[in-house]
């Protein structure tokens, strides 16, 4: 399975985008792991004219004036060393954020575009603990090379979109709100 990249038709439960909006703008974009992939999603949201607040280390207090949360998964050892945080710190922060978001009945979307290289132990821990609590999952074929996220979506009954590449997830992002 080392070089196997599953085609979209192999993931029979994958949908190209949401059939109807899940939430409303303005969306809070945050990170679980502080990888630079968060900045890519932020820029994509700007390109798609999705109103957003970008706060990589958002907490529950930042939910004010937002109607949805996008969490971009991916642990960055470089940023963790520089900013002196651990995966447990991230896990705790994001878990609190998820809890407060659910308390406010706001949708949470989980995005992972880090491909196989980003699937280090810390990232896997975040995905395993937090992704089942999402309302919608967006990922790419290369990132879900082992069907890990697909299995979570099937088990937790969460709609999932698996795109061919990172630049094709914009349609899925827009479908959350429009």
């Amino acid at each position: 399975m080392l070089f196997h990249i599953p085609k979209p038709e192999e993931n029979y439960g994958s949908i190209p985008s949401l059939p109807q909006p899940l939430g409303q703008e303005t969306v809070l974009i945050t990170s679980a792991g502080q990888s630079s992939d968060t900045n890519v999603i932020k820029d994509m949201a700007n390109e798609m004219m999705i109103h957003n607040y970008f706060m990589p280390k958002a907490t529950g207090a930042d939910l004010e004036k937002t109607n949805a949360v996008i969490i971009v998964f991916g642990f960055s050892p470089v940023n963790a060393k520089q900013q002196e945080f651990s995966v447990e710190d991230e896990l705790k922060r994001v878990q609190n954020l998820i809890q407060m978001t659910k308390d406010q009945n706001k949708p949470i979307i989980g995005v992972f575009i880090g491909e196989k290289a980003r699937r280090i132990d810390q990232t896997n821990l975040l995905l395993q603990e937090l992704m089942p609590q999402m309302d919608y999952i967006i990922t790419t074929i290369q990132s879900d090379y082992d069907n890990f996220l697909y299995d979570i979506s099937m088990t937790s009954d969460i709609p999932i979109t698996i795109t061919e590449s990172v630049y094709t997830i914009s349609e899925s992002l827009v479908s959350i709100f429009r």
Binding site: S35, V78, A117, S165
Partner: peptide, 13 residues
């Protein structure tokens, strides 16, 4: 590793 992966994801985007 982290940096080459970040560069690659950004270039793909």
């Amino acid at each position: 590793t982290d940096i080459p992966t970040s560069i690659r994801i950004a270039s793909l985007y």
